[in-house]
Amino acid sequence: MNIFRFLGDMSHILSFLLLLHKIVGGKSAAGISLRTAEMYAIVFCTRYIDLLWNFASLYNYLLKLLFIGASLTIVYFMRYGPSQKATYNADEDAFPVQYLIAPCAVLGVLINQDHSSPFEMVWAFSIYLEAVAILPQLFLLQKQGEVENLTSHYVFALGAYRALYLLNWMFRFMTEPDYQQRIVWLSGLVQTALYCDFFYHYYQSKKGGLNKSVKLP
C-alpha cells in the first residue's frame, strides 16, 4: 500500500459519499446519469466477484463490499426512488452504452492476463468498462451545460481517484521489480484522459470560490 493508492481509494469513497448525499440525502438525481451508475455497478460486481475466494486483505475486502453496496444503492434509488425518478432526466441521459459494453466484453475475452481463467477475462472486462463508464455522465453534463455544485465535486473526486491510481502504478513500477500491469495502465490513462476537459472547467470555476457552479461550453 502506498500513499497514492490510499488517497485514490479515499477519493473514490468520497465520490460515493457525495453522490449518496445528493441522491439519498438530497433526494435529487438532477444531472446524474443512471447509465453511468449502472455501468459502475457492473464494473464492481464483475471485478470484485473474487470476494468469494480472494482474501487479499481486510482493507480490500471491506472496500469491495462498500463499493458494491454503494453502487447498487445508487442504482436502486435512481430507479425506484419517487423523488429521484422525478428529478432524473431519462431522455437527456441517452448515451448508447451498448457501444461501450460490447467492445469491452470482446476486449476482456481477447486481452487479459491469463486466457485460461474466466475470472481474468471478467476482471479485464471490468477494467476496460470502468475506463469508459463515465462517458454517459460527462455527455449528460455537456448537454446540460451547467453542473450543479455537488455533482461537480462528485465527478472531480471520481476523476481524481483514477489519476491517483496512475501515480500508484508508477510508484509500484519503480519500487517493485516484477510489477507491470499493462491492462490497468492503459485503461487508467484513458479513464483519466476523459476527465481532462472537465478538470479544466472545474478548476476555472472553482478558483473563484468552491460554491460556483461549473459551466461547460
Binding site: D50, A56, N60, D114, Q181, R182
Partner: peptide, 10 residues
C-alpha cells in the same frame, strides 16, 4: 502480460 497475479488492488 503477467500471469493472473492475485489482485491486491481495488
Amino acid at each position: 502480460i503477467s500471469k493472473g497475479k492475485p489482485k491486491d488492488e481495488l
